[in-house]
């Protein structure tokens, strides 16, 4: 059934990848707590997760020595890449429109300028 790929070297790479994924997930968690407003938190919630997830999944494939796992992982990564921008956009958009951000922490806000121009 499952063709075996790789040898002991793969175990080491897998361990490194899993660790990297874990560190990125930790960073996402810390960012979620530490970043000041909803929009900044979206960065923490969605971004390290992408590379983190890829690291973990690739690590799992290497550790499991199986090709069929690779197929499922490829699908999982692609769907993640396609769907996470959508949710990030919808939440970010809603967050901006409902004023769920700290204006004082925005250096520049060209969307506000644009809305002002449109309403003038």
């Amino acid at each position: 059934m499952d063709d075996v790929i790789g040898g002991d070297g793969f175990e080491l790479v897998a361990a490194v990848l899993l660790l990297a994924g874990a560190v990125l997930s930790l960073a996402a968690g810390v960012g979620l707590v530490r970043f000041p407003d909803a929009l900044s938190r979206m960065h923490a919630a969605t971004k390290p997760q992408i590379l983190g997830l890829i690291c973990v999944l690739v690590g799992v494939v290497l550790a499991s020595h199986s090709w069929s796992a690779l197929l499922v992982v490829v699908v999982a990564i692609l769907l993640q890449l396609l769907t996470s921008p959508m949710s990030a956009h919808m939440i970010g958009r809603a967050g901006y429109r409902t004023g769920n951000y700290r204006r004082d922490l925005l250096e520049r806000d060209e969307l506000e300028d644009d809305i002002k121009r449109a309403s003038d």
Binding site: V23, P48, L105, L106
Partner: peptide
């Protein structure tokens, strides 16, 4: 990823942004 992660771990500063 590294950049955002390092910002998360930079304690004592509040991150600012732009739109």
């Amino acid at each position: 990823s590294v950049e955002v992660a390092s910002k998360a771990f930079r304690f004592g500063t509040v991150v600012r942004s732009s739109v």
